[in-house]
Nucleic acid binder design. Structure first.
Lengths: 228, 228
DNA sequence: CGGCATCCTCTTTGATACTG
DNA sequence: CAGTATCAAAGAGGATGCCG
């Protein structure tokens, strides 16, 4: 049966390296252009529409997005869900298998971070992207204490950072009532402050707007791969 | 200066996603077809010749290999070294920056492992590949004790597994004197036994040839990402 | 032989326009 | 909104040629 599946695979046009190697097999599935960026987008906001994806993937051609989505669905990375009326749209969500790509995305982000130019180019940036490094690289030192809530604004969009009971950090879109802290400014500066890489005073000097209990930032630590 | 570098980058023909995102920037550099497999190959045996690379990358076109090597050198992933006479050949090695891709390769391998067919297809397999998962996913529980040496044969090639003082495991090509253990058989079975996923008795039933101190295998543990 | 460069064909992509 | 359709340009793959 497995042989049959691989026979079909090879003959369905899915280009394969044809190597008996786990890395090559992974790249057979997620090595195509744009595929991992679509995964990134769905990891940031799971269950989003075609148009949301297009907006979160500046530069992608619409035919390519459609093609990739079909391939990724066939590969079991994502699923389509018909949203309930009256919304009447299709939502794309990662499957469990798709979410298992998180360590790959995390490792790529760590490796690619030094390649980011200091000044963000507005054209190729989307405000919600900041949610990904926060979730992947930030942890709560004291998950047993009261959850942290921070309101973040970069660009026009408001985001809410909230710690969970297991020490992980979630980011939702929208604002929150009575947050411990409000951060407004450019995303790289906000991230740098959260990760403890930039002193608060310096960040304020660079234009970051901070209001609230700055002491709460001591609760955060970066994951070892970042800290090291 | 940095602006200038990025200006050159954008205009040298290096296709870029143009997104201000660390994952996208990483994929700008290592997202091209074959690039990560070349990294894999150099991670297994660093400092190898063009011909060795071609042999370790079944399916690559020679012009593509040459092109990728040039791009990767320009991107600072690898270096050429003129081997001393009388060898008179060029050796390719990863730079430190190239070696930092190890977590990416490791994460891809973990994700891709379930995609491997049970029966290895001889055509698309190279014996030395087994060195990579051993190094990435196997650790010594007791690095303070005497180093472990194991001789491995899959196919025609002999490999030597040796533990280092820091708990990591290295694999060299060639045999060794008086190893604790000799393993001969198919690579997947050998790996499965080393990672503790297959009982020794079962592996022997499946054709694996084991000789020596099988108790030494208790010293090994898989890395958490595998064990979990 | 080792390390490519050239030539050619085929596939993938990117940009844009169009549709139910 | 959620895609198809079309078409030009770029990239991948294969064969072969060249040069020290």
């Amino acid at each position: 049966m497995l042989d049959f599946i691989f026979y079909v695979w090879q003959n369905i046009g899915m280009r394969s390296y044809g190597q008996h190697c786990a890395v090559a097999k992974a790249l057979d599935v997620i090595g195509d252009r744009w595929t991992l960026l679509i995964v990134r987008e769905l990891m940031i906001r799971d269950g989003c529409r075609y148009t949301d994806l297009r907006n979160g993937l500046p530069g992608i051609a619409t035919n390519l997005l459609a093609e990739r989505l079909a391939e990724m669905e066939a590969a079991g990375l994502l699923e389509r869900e018909a949203a309930r009326p009256p919304v009447a749209t299709t939502l794309f969500r990662l499957t469990a298998r798709g979410r298992e790509l998180e360590p790959v995305i995390a490792a790529l982000g760590i490796w690619g971070a030094p390649l980011l130019p200091r000044k963000p180019d507005k054209a190729g940036f989307r405000d919600h992207w900041i949610a990904l490094p926060i979730r992947l690289y930030l942890r709560d030192r004291h998950p047993e204490r009261e959850p942290i809530r921070i309101s973040i604004r970069c660009g026009d969009e408001w985001l809410t950072l909230a710690t969970l009971g297991d020490g992980s950090v979630e980011v939702r879109s929208g604002s929150t009532n009575s947050p411990h802290l409000k951060l407004e400014g450019n995303p790289q500066m906000i991230l740098s402050v959260l990760l403890g890489k930039t002193q608060i005073a310096i960040a304020e000097g660079e234009g970051l707007n901070i209001a609230g209990d700055v002491g709460i930032l001591q609760r955060f630590r970066p994951v070892p791969a970042i800290a090291g």
